[in-house]
Design a protein around this nucleic acid. Structure first.
Lengths: 154, 154
DNA sequence: CTTATAAGTCTTGAAAGTGAACTCAGTCAA
DNA sequence: TTGACTGAGTTCACTTTCAAGACTTATAAG
């Protein structure tokens, strides 16, 4: 299967990864959450090839994850900002960061901490249930198909 | 910058993505959480090229995300199972699934639901604070460097 | 004019991915 | 004892994507 065909899969994860799942896109989005907004900033921060950066930004804009906003007339210059759809990726980003913190922080500890302004503490992200608010572990979850699952029956 | 140099970055997200951030790895892990364990099963489920699957599984084993376990002697056959480190990726996977549910579910709704066995409800994943248990939004969080940040100073 | 800046685009060799065929160890059935 | 079959890979001949740097375009500043 080609990567491009992924978005046609009947699976939300495939469809998410069709947008986010290549080598640079999530790093670009991490930068967005750190208030990086301009082409040269992304390029300097990531060391990504310019052509690839350009492609990825275009795709994220096309998908509505980022929007391209004029910040200067003459010469026209644009910056890239998270939309609401983009902001909704925060749990994905933070989960990845905290997994890295747990398994790849050196002796020096995690390079970055996150303070929860509401309670004042540095925190880790916890997966919680939208219905009861409790923390959720993999063994507490039963995935089940929503409706009819289409199978090839031939 | 080459992808291979990513793991040397002083950022937990880079280090996570150095392991997980290519085009197929997270889909392989999704399958793991759905109890797919064997080479042929992964291959059939994903339609991935066999060479790439083989490479990815090896890498995940090398990183300690999966372990390779003998399930049959003569001929020796192995299956791949999540380690604790792998199980800790559940928040990442579920966040991606629920983001896809929200933005890419068709008229039919999400293809897959997740029941929280503790409370009995189908749920969405919510990002919560490990310290106070409250739900966290991006604007509630202040990231700050943990220790000295190394910069190129000349 | 000349240089500088920001945001790209173009080019070219290197790396990675694709799909089909092939290998290898062993089982099973005739 | 041959022949088909299974599961887990490996190999090969392409095709696609990526990396790094040079080039382009619009404009301002000196």
């Amino acid at each position: 299967m080609r990567w491009g065909d992924l978005s046609e899969q009947n699976c939300s994860m495939s469809r998410s990864l069709a947008v986010l799942g290549d080598r640079w896109t999530l790093l670009i989005l991490r930068d967005c959450f750190l208030r990086v907004r301009r082409f040269e900033e992304f390029q300097a921060s990531l060391g990504i090839a310019r052509r690839v950066l350009s492609e990825r930004l275009d795709k994220l804009v096309a998908e509505g994850v980022l929007r391209r906003e004029l910040y200067q007339e003459r010469p026209q210059r644009f910056e890239y900002r998270l939309t609401e759809k983009g902001l909704d990726l925060y749990p994905v980003i933070l989960s990845l960061v905290h997994w890295g913190d747990r398994y790849y922080a050196g002796r020096a500890g995690p390079p970055m901490l996150h303070r929860h302004l509401a309670c004042g503490h540095d925190f880790r992200s916890v997966l919680a249930c939208s219905e009861c608010g409790e923390a959720v572990r993999p063994q507490d979850v039963a995935p089940h198909p929503c409706a009819v699952i289409r199978r090839k029956t031939g």
